[in-house]
């Protein structure tokens, strides 16, 4: 399992636009990708749940990646979060 974390910089938080992009990105990988904020855990392929999690600007999210392509996924997702969230 790979773990990474990122801080949301988008002033609107993880709203429809970045969440929509994340779902598309996450579907590229075989690994199971999960976002953790406090007690809450949301799979990155679940758009409504992501939007419903209410992740705001300045909050830090931990991401766990588990599966066959976890190493590649972790590397590429780190870049994705930096650029889009």
């Amino acid at each position: 399992m790979q773990t990474l974390s990122f801080t949301v910089k988008d002033p609107m938080g993880l709203h429809a636009r970045p969440a929509g992009l994340l779902v598309k990105e996450a579907k590229k990988y075989a690994s199971k990708i999960t976002l953790h904020k406090g007690e809450k855990a949301v799979e990155a392929t679940r758009l409504m749940a992501l939007m419903g999690a209410g992740i705001k600007c300045g909050e830090t999210v931990t991401v766990t990646i588990e599966g066959a392509d976890e190493a590649t996924a972790a590397q590429e997702l780190a870049v994705f979060f930096e650029q889009n969230c």
Partner: peptide
């Protein structure tokens, strides 16, 4: 495109 993801959302 986001609407399309909503239509396919697993939940």
């Amino acid at each position: 495109e986001t609407h399309c993801e909503m239509a396919q959302d697993p939940d």
